[in-house]
Amino acid sequence: MGFVTTSDGLQLYYEEAGSGPVIVFVHEFGGNYWSWEPQLNYFSRRYRCITFAARGYAPSDIPEDVERYSQARAADDIVDVIKALGVEKAHIVGLSMGGFACLHAALRHPDHIQSVVAAGAGYGAEKAHEAYFKGVSEQVAKNFAERGAKDFAPVYASGASRVQFQNKDPRGWALFAERLGQHSSIGAANTMRGVQMRRPSLYDLETELSALQAPTLVIVGDEDDHCLQPGFFLKRTIPSCGLSVFPKAGHTLNLEEPALFNSTVSEFLAQVELGQWKPRDPRANPAQIMRTD
C-alpha cells in the first residue's frame, strides 16, 4: 500500500496483492478501493492485483475545485497508477463509473491496456435519458454536499438497481452502505458533477469504440435496466467485445455476485492471455438469420 502521484500532481492511495500479470481494479461512484476485496482475494492467487482510491475518495487527495474532476482525468489516473508502479501493460477491470473510466483509458492510452472489463457501464449513456440523468445527478450531488454522506448514503444505497444486492446479501449491503456513509461529502459531490454529469454518452463515441483493439468484456445485470441497452451497444460496436448478462442481478455486480463475477472475468482473462479472445468472425453476420446458399 502507498501513494502514487498523478500527472497533474495529486496523490492517489493504492493497495496491491499477489504476483503475475497485472490487473488494475477501478471502483464505482458508490465504492472505493475496498470494493474489490472479493476480487483481490481470488485473483491475487495468480495475478498482481492493484486497486486504488479515485481522486475525491479518501485517503486519496480530495480537490475542492470541481474542475480537477473529469472523465478524461479519471481515465488518465488509471494509467498514471499503472506507470507509477512500473507496469508496462495491465488488464483493467471497472464497475460503473470505473467501467466508463476503463473504456476511456483504453481509448486514450491503448499501449498500456491489455484488456478491458467494463461492468455496469451505462448510466447516462442512453440518449433518451440524458437530460434526466444530468438532473438527477445534480440532485444527488446536492444531497451529498448539503445533507452529508452519512445521512444520504442509505438513500443512495437503496436505489432501484441496488435492492437486488440488499435482498441477496443484507450483511454485505449494510457494509457497503456504511462505508458509503464515510465518503467525503465534497469529494462525492465533485465526482458526481465533474465526472458523471459531464462524461460523453457512449453512443457519441461509436467511431472511437469501433476502432478499439483491446479485448473487451462487458458485464451487466438483467435488472440494471439503464445498463442493458448500452451493454448491447458496446457488444455490437467494439470488435473484440463479449457480453455477459447476469440473471436477477442489479448494479453492484462484483459484490452482489462475487463468485459469478470472478469466474466470468477469470475465463475472459485466461482467453486473453492465450490470444484466444478475438474479434467477431465476419461470417457471424448479424443481418443473417439462416444461410441459404
Rank of each mutant, 00 (worst) to 15 (best):
A54C: 08
R55L: 11
G56A: 06
G56S: 07
A58T: 12
A58V: 12
S60M: 15
D61Y: 14
D61V: 12
P63L: 12
E64K: 14
V66Y: 08
E67C: 10
Y69T: 07
Y69H: 11
Y69C: 08
R73H: 12
A74W: 00
A74F: 02
D77V: 01
D77R: 03
I78K: 01
V81Q: 01
V81G: 03
A84I: 05
L85Q: 09
L85A: 10
G86N: 07
V87M: 10
V87W: 10
V87K: 13
K89N: 04
H91Y: 00
H91M: 00
I92S: 02
V93M: 01
G94S: 02
L95P: 02
L95W: 00
S96A: 08
M97R: 02
G98V: 01
G99R: 03
F100L: 05
L103Q: 13
H104L: 12
A106M: 06
R108N: 05
H109S: 01
P110I: 04
P110K: 08
D111C: 11
D111R: 13
I113A: 09
I113R: 09
I113K: 09
Q114A: 15
Q114I: 09
S115N: 06
S115H: 06
S115Y: 05
A118Y: 12
G122F: 03
G122D: 03
Y123V: 13
Y123C: 11
G124W: 06
G124C: 06
A125I: 09
E126M: 11
K127E: 13
H129V: 15
E130P: 12
E130C: 14
A131P: 09
F133M: 10
K134V: 05
K134A: 02
G135C: 04
V136A: 11
V136C: 10
S137A: 11
E138C: 00
E138T: 03
A141K: 01
A141E: 03
K142Y: 03
K142F: 03
F144K: 03
A145E: 04
E146L: 01
R147K: 08
D151P: 02
D151Q: 04
D151V: 13
S158L: 07
G159N: 07
G159I: 09
A160S: 12
S161W: 06
R162I: 14
R162E: 14
R162C: 15
Q164L: 12
F165W: 08
N167I: 08
N167C: 12
N167Q: 15
K168H: 10
K168M: 09
P170Q: 08
P170H: 08
R171Q: 15
R171V: 14
W173V: 13
A174L: 07
F176Y: 03
F176D: 05
F176E: 04
A177Q: 07
E178P: 06
G181R: 04
G181L: 03
G181Y: 04
G181V: 12
Q182C: 14
H183R: 09
S184W: 10
I186H: 09
G187F: 01
G187K: 03
